[in-house]
Computed example of a mutant assay.
Amino acid sequence: MKKGFKACLRDFDGAHMKGPYPGQILTAVGLDSNNGIYPLAYAIVDIYLLAYAIVEIENCESWKWFLECLGDDLDLHAISNFTFVSDKQKGLLQAVSQLFPCVEHRFCLGHIHDNMQKQWRTKEYEDHLWDCATATTVPEFNHYMHILNNLWRANIDMLLNNLCEVFNGKLVDRRDKPIMSCLEFIREYMMKRICNLLKVQKKCVGPLTPTATKIMEKNEAVATLYIAEWCGDEKYQVKGPWNDQHVVDMHERVCSCRIWELRGIPCRYVISVLYNKADHGECVHELHTYVHKVHWLQTWKTAYGYKVEPIKGRALWPRSECPMQITPPPHCNQPGRPKRKRRKYMEEKSQSRS
């Protein structure tokens, strides 16, 4: 999994154990080329290559151990520059700042909105919050923040939603099992998940992933409404029907809306420029060549070209020659009836009722 994640070309952005062996499952999940979840992998013991670790409690020390293992496997250093997205788990903020002081640390906007709903419940607040989160330029963000301030007279940070919730949701049925059974379930789940994605990839056609293809088709349809004017060199001024105007620099491959730079997919303004260049007989390559390779179908296939290997049954596992004897964890009877369902957030509850 760690080899496949490196092939994704993307920077990466716990769940409680139940039953008689309480603890924590710490997870690190990234994005693949199709914007799907990609559980990161490292070894707990020699025969397990899984995207988790089990610790006694969720604190700074356990998170530091988790991140040190993750950093060793992914060749991350103290000066590495990437993005963490978290739910403000206990000890995680301190651990990340100590081990990776140069990273960008964002917080899950879904959890921020869930906390916001305790006081501001209307959909109007939600819409303006997401407008702030999806803004790609400072003026656009300030505009939406001004509208939001007029509604609730307070500032709020914009961040992305957390991918780990999807992965943790798959672990619900086995979190009350013994540790070895839980680890085996996760390993087999990840093995099956790669196989399922390989079946999906065989049905895909075209140079881009399905998600990137949909985004490009949408941008292409809207780009016909824009007018691009050549300003000399490789710069163009692009006007739209909604009084929006941006500058595209084809030499630097940037647009003042910053969408091309941030997402790696040409925005409507860039595609309008390409249409203009083609109309004037200039050499224009195929549209997918202007998309970052992270969104190419071949990159997506390469990421899942590495497999989680099957292993023999437990009866055939070799005995460890470690002189230290590892004792079983203390047995702890949980109070009340065991909960098997993940706690849903308010937005999920409203969607299920509708």
Rank of each mutant, 00 (worst) to 15 (best):
D249Y: 06
Q98L: 15
G91Q: 09
V294P: 02
N149K: 12
G305V: 13
H331F: 12
Q298W: 05
P310E: 12
H111P: 04
Y21N: 05
R121Q: 08
V138E: 14
N34R: 07
P328A: 02
S80I: 13
G14M: 01
T27Q: 01
D127F: 09
L67V: 05
E165I: 10
H285M: 08
Q237V: 06
K192C: 04
H113G: 09
T137I: 05
T27V: 14
L297M: 14
A133C: 11
K170Q: 08
C231N: 01
Y345P: 01
G169R: 02
M158T: 10
R187G: 02
P39Q: 04
L163I: 00
R153W: 05
L40P: 10
N219F: 15
E261N: 12
L316C: 08
H280P: 04
M324C: 07
I156A: 10
S354R: 12
L197D: 00
T83L: 02
D13R: 01
T302L: 10
F185Q: 00
V308P: 04
Y304M: 04
P310W: 04
Y236K: 09
I156Y: 06
K199I: 08
V273C: 15
V248H: 01
E348G: 04
Y226F: 15
F100H: 03
L26C: 04
K341A: 09
N161G: 08
G336S: 05
N155E: 14
K90D: 05
S320A: 06
R175H: 00
L49T: 06
P210L: 13
V238T: 05
N142A: 11
Y42W: 14
A303K: 01
D157I: 04
S320N: 08
S80Y: 07
F12A: 12
Q119F: 13
T302P: 01
I271L: 14
A133I: 14
I265G: 00
K2P: 04
D127R: 13
S350P: 00
K2W: 09
E126L: 15
D127C: 13
R10V: 03
P310D: 12
